[in-house]
Design a binder for these strands. Structure first.
Lengths: 254, 254
DNA sequence: TCGAGCCGTTGCAGTAAATGCAACAGGCAT
DNA sequence: ATGCCTGTTGCATTTACTGCAACGGCTCGA
């Protein structure tokens, strides 16, 4: 739409490949040297572009600062909420969103089941970290050393007969979750409740949150709940994409 | 220099603060809505700006992708080299640059001492990881869990009487190094050789490399070498800034 | 149901601002 | 010293950016 800006922005991916001098930039833009110079100057004034001692141009610190500030000011909950609502509308079950924080995993959003039977949980409340699907997802994403250390520190209460009650089993479960990219909790926390969940990832690929769908046995069987897995994963991926600022393939013709 | 580009770039820090709609952007730029719209469109086409479902604008994934690609294609050695040469010119001693890679710390650049007595080292060769100043610096920067795990895995050869020979001592030394932001090796690897070093940090604050000045006892005493510390640190910081694309305060009037 | 208000979008005419040219300048190597 | 290579500047041309005003879609309230 705006030619000047268009040209200026086209410089960025070019410089991301590595340092380049004025002539190279001008050549790849297909413009006169003087034009390229003025564009680079403007980018330079904004700190987007950095000038090396050898006069060549590179991407500058401002790019890093902007990227960092942008993620800091992003609110997962705000972005995720509409997706959670939609998933709840489609399935009718309780949907949770959780984050990891200092050896705890906390619910930060929840959309209640439309069925009369509901499970107990509250926004801001720590989850059953050794069994909840969202906890497995978030801990599975940690680097190996830290994952092992955390697993050692935890308590393993036997909520039910199917609870995970030791670090070794837990780590094995995390490895599986890490591998497959989704997690379940089949009666490990509350006897009659099953969950299936998937991670929400940020622009760097790390899990920033996790979401799950929970339902009691009496409403749907574990197998039926697992049938929702593709939908849950698609939802989580959609949140990830939106959180990362990715624009999905949409508009074909204007 | 270029008004259009200047305005377009001014939008970025504004959006980094959080999502904003067209009017807000136009207002803060001091331009007509239609002008802001066209700028945002251009930014959008380049993926720099993302449009949320609620029509508001945010920074897009391209920012993150660019920042990431830029650091990947950056060569610390290339940037550091002139600084190392200058430091060597000023001090006369051997200057090393090293990086951390899979439980090893490797020399990736070296500027030889001007004195006849030289120390043995080679580019590409692993350093004495339990004693070298550069190794301490790079390992001290790891997250605590990983640092502990690495320390356990290492061997602790007794090169000299002053070598570090156990994990506990090593971890204590790393903690000290982490705290003070610089490191030494006083005869821990070779009896008669002392080193003093400082870390090179990337835009995110993590150490991407470390550099050191080494000299034999017969040329300068350990105390004299320590006198070079401020210079070494300034050099390392200068490399860090340049690596991160920071432009130091320079030009006052054009 | 209708209408008012809010915001984003579009077409257009005027002109400001970007472009390319050509000449200059500074550095480096021959 | 001299020539080449690359970045920089002043200027005339005209392109393409701007602001205006009118339109359109949507939401909210009467």
């Amino acid at each position: 739409m705006s030619q000047t800006v268009d040209r200026a922005l086209s410089i960025l991916p070019l410089l991301a490949e590595g340092p380049a001098n004025l002539e190279q930039v001008a050549a790849r833009l297909g413009v006169h040297k003087s034009t390229a110079l003025r564009l680079l100057r403007t980018l330079h004034e904004h700190g987007i572009v950095h000038r090396q001692p050898d006069q060549r141009y590179r991407l500058g610190s401002r790019i890093f600062a902007l990227a960092q500030q942008a993620v800091e000011n992003l609110d997962v909950r705000e972005i995720a909420h509409p997706h959670l609502v939609e998933l709840n509308a489609r399935t009718g079950h309780t949907v949770h969103l959780a984050v990891h924080e200092e050896d705890e995993v906390l619910y930060i959003d929840k959309v209640e089941s439309r069925y009369p039977v509901r499970m107990y949980s509250r926004i801001g409340k720590p989850v059953a970290i050794t069994n909840a699907a969202v906890a497995k997802l978030l801990l599975a994403d940690l680097p190996e050393q830290e994952r092992r250390a955390v697993a050692q520190r935890l308590d393993y209460p036997r909520y039910t007969a199917r609870s995970i009650t030791d670090a070794k089993t837990f780590l094995a479960e995390l490895a599986k979750v890490r591998e497959q990219g989704w997690a379940t909790d089949l009666g490990g926390h509350e006897e009659s409740i099953n969950c299936v969940g998937a991670p929400v990832r940020g622009p760097d690929g790390r899990a920033v949150a996790a979401m799950s769908v929970s339902a009691p046995n009496v409403v749907v069987s574990a197998d039926e709940l697992l049938g929702l897995l593709p939908l849950v994963r698609r939802t989580a991926d959609a949140i990830s994409d939106e959180y990362s600022g990715k624009t999905p393939e949409k508009e074909r013709h204007p």
